Amino acid sequence: MDKTPDILCIGSVLWDVVGRTGAEMVKGNDVPGRIVRIPGGVALNIAMTLKGFGLVPGLVSVLGTDPAGNELAAACEDMNLVTRYLTRDPDLPTDSYIAIEDGSGLVAAMCDAHSLEAAGERILAPLLDGRLGSDAAPYPGTIALDGNLTETLLANIAERPAFRAADLRIAPASPGKATRLTPLLAHPGATLYVNLEEAGLLLGRSFDGAHLAAEALVSAGATRAMVSDGARSAALGTFEGTISAAPPKVAQVRVTGAGDTFMAAHIAAELRREDAQAALDTALRAAATFVSGGTPK
C-alpha cells in the first residue's frame, strides 16, 4: 500500500494462536475448545483497530522471510495497512504469541518476541534515515509504541531527538514488561496506556482503582496516563486533572486484544478531536464491543 500513514504502529507484528473454552480451567486441565490463528501483536492489533476507524496505519516492525512472515505480510497488505516500513530479515523467524482463555478470562499466555528484540534499532531506520524523520528533522506525527521492544531501545527512543516531536502513545504489552516504560515517563509528548496492575508495577505500589493510579503516574512525571481496570472504571490523568468513566456491561466472549482495542479507539477519537470525556467513553465502548465478540467502529 502506497498511502502516507496517518499514524505509525511500532512493535510486535506476529501470529496469535488463541485457544478458547467456556469451561473453567485450572492448572493441568485438558478441555475441548476452539483454537484460532490470527494476525496479532500489540502494534498490529492497534493498527487493525485504527484501520476500522478510518485511519491509515503504517507498521514498523520485523518479519522473517519464512512462510509465516510472508503469509503475515500478505495478510497486512490485504487489510490495506502500510507495510513498506517493515524490516524483513531472512535470519530471524516470525514472532508468535499463544494464549488460553476460559469462561472467566485469560488463563495463561506467552509472547515470543525474540526476533523483534534481536532486530533492535534496525526496525527504526525509517524514522532515522529521512524516510519518515531523522534526528535533524524529527517525525511530528502520532506513534503507537509497544513495550515488546527492549528496555535499551525504549530508553533510546525516550532520549533520541528523532522522537522528541512525536505524539507518543505507549503500551507496555504485558505486566511483565511494564517497567520497561520507565524511561518514557518523562517524554513530553507521551501518553501511557496501562492497566491497574501495570501502573502498580511502574510505581512500585498497589492501587485500589484507576483514578488514583492515573493521578499517581502524573505525579511521578507522566504527561498523560490512561489506566484501565477491566470491567471497572478507567481513568485519564493529566496535569490539568483526572477524569474517569465506567465501561458498558457486556457478556465476555474474548479478552486477548481488548486492551489494544481500547488504546486504538482512544487514539482515533482524539485524532477526530473528541473532547477528553467523549474520547474516553468511545474507547470504553469499543473495548466492550470487542470483548462481547463484535467489531468496534
Rank of each mutant, 00 (worst) to 15 (best):
M1G: 10
D2R: 14
K3D: 14
I7W: 01
W15E: 05
V26I: 12
D30R: 14
I35M: 13
V36G: 09
V36F: 11
A43K: 11
N45D: 09
L50E: 03
G58K: 06
G58T: 02
V60T: 02
P67Q: 00
G69E: 07
E71I: 03
E71A: 15
V82I: 15
L86P: 04
T87Q: 10
R88Y: 10
I100D: 00
D102W: 06
G103W: 12
G105V: 13
A108I: 15
S115H: 02
L116T: 05
E121F: 03
R122G: 03
R122V: 12
I123V: 15
P126A: 04
L127T: 02
G130W: 03
Y139Q: 12
N148Q: 02
L153Q: 10
L153C: 09
N156G: 13
E159C: 01
R160V: 00
R160N: 15
R169Q: 15
T179G: 00
R180V: 09
L185G: 03
L185K: 04
T191E: 07
E197R: 14
E197Q: 11
G204R: 08
G204P: 09
G209Y: 00
L217E: 06
S219L: 12
G221N: 09
T223V: 14
T223S: 11
R232V: 00
G237I: 01
E240R: 10
S244T: 01
A246F: 08
A246E: 14
P247D: 13
P248V: 08
Q252W: 02
A258N: 07
H266P: 01
E274S: 03
A286G: 09
A288K: 04
G293W: 06
G293V: 05
G293R: 03
